[in-house]
């Protein structure tokens, strides 16, 4: 898998709600399609996404086969302290792709 794309602000005011965007390259093969040889193409999707802040998970998604290739996930988080975001994508083979982003609280 490629390096996931992230858009996380570097700084935020205390109590500010920020928007986090993520995009990862993945075929998201649904398992319902037939290949050129007429045989079913085995399912191969990212089935789980998690987002943690300072080690504590605050957002997650169980992803199902209807999601398109290259899943784009956008969500909000309220920032109260400096810290590190950890993002993890798990696919059907059990491969976990990880990414990290840091954020600091700026004086209001």
């Amino acid at each position: 898998m490629s390096v996931p794309r992230l858009r996380v602000p570097k700084t935020a005011k205390k109590g500010e709600v920020i928007t986090i965007k993520s995009l990862i390259e993945h075929p998201m093969e649904s398992g319902f399609r037939k290949g050129p040889d007429g045989k079913m193409v085995p399912r191969m999707i990212i089935n789980k996404f998690t987002a943690s802040f300072n080690g504590k998970q605050f957002f997650g998604a169980n992803i199902q086969p209807s999601v398109s290739a290259n899943p784009y996930i956008e969500f909000d988080a309220k920032i109260d302290a400096d810290g590190t975001f950890d993002f993890a994508w798990t696919d059907d083979k059990g491969v976990v792709t990880k990414a990290q982003a840091k954020i600091t609280v700026a004086a209001a």
Partner: peptide, 12 residues
């Protein structure tokens, strides 16, 4: 840290 809100899990 409050729970994040899902805006869109985009099945484009």
């Amino acid at each position: 840290m409050s729970a994040g809100r899902i805006k869109q899990v985009l099945s484009a």
